[in-house]
Amino acid sequence: MLEVRDLKVSFHTEQGPARAIDGVSFDVAEGEILGVVGESGSGKTVSLLAVMGLITDPNVVIEGSIKYQGRELVGLPAKEMRKLRGREIAMIFQDPMTALTPVYTIGWQIAEQIRAHNSISAKQAEQRAIDLLAEVNIANPHEAIHRYPHQLSGGMRQRAVIAMALSCNPSLLVADEPTTALDVTVQAQILDLVRKLQKNHKSAVVFITHDMGVIAEIADRVMVMYAGRIVERGNKVALFSNPLHPYTKALLDSIPLLEGERPRRLKSIPGSPPALLNRPKGCAFAPRCANRFEACASVPVLPNAGHDAACFKVNP
């Protein structure tokens, strides 16, 4: 349904072009949940913002191809893109505290999106908003539509944001760390909700997070990103049971185990991710990798099928 090919996103800066995304290709199939995992700055959010056409920085250059249901999105006129956004492709953002306009009720904001894409009366839109709020398990939806964002808790706001994203039955839902700003019990509820809604609405979901635990909970397939590239991709079970890329291994090693002997210290990855303007020439992870060898001086390729990793140890 969504085909991204060789996507490159760079920003003009005073120190020259900064390539945030460097040749990313992936597919999202109808009705699946794709987990995108990576550290801050790995490009996971930027690549999906590029898909949404939501990068407003005037210094941005987007190359490559993004095809949504066969339609090319790179270079699509803003007006056409706007018709897709919110109706076909919807997005949930990280911080529900700031994602809603403070001066309007949540009912108004949901109805606004519905009416932007469908020609229905205000009354019908309000009824639909009530139904949506009920669907995301908000108590007393009749009353809740008249609430302002500041009158709701974080979890409630995120539910309202999700209700808004689902209001036009999008076939693709991009969730950008929707649970990061919430506390753990609310996180679990939101994850359950996303899974339930994904089944009911049959939408495909791209779930961005830096939390391997959340990925294990929700994703069908997983894509691991590092320094603007995809380093490993595969089915969730395969990837968790048999991680190929040293970065994925290291990420999984840094999670504390529930059973067995507790290590004195958790393993951490030495060094820090490379700066945007100063990325290594070859494999970006090489400087932090214990298994690096001569070949790592050139860029490893990610084979385009099944469970695989962009690493010369895996694909010599």
Binding site: R82, D95, T98, A99, E112, A116, M164
Partner: peptide
């Protein structure tokens, strides 16, 4: 602000 990004994601003009 974030809510302007949300408004853009909603497909508003």
């Amino acid at each position: 602000e974030d809510y302007v990004r949300t408004a853009r994601a909603k497909g508003l003009s």
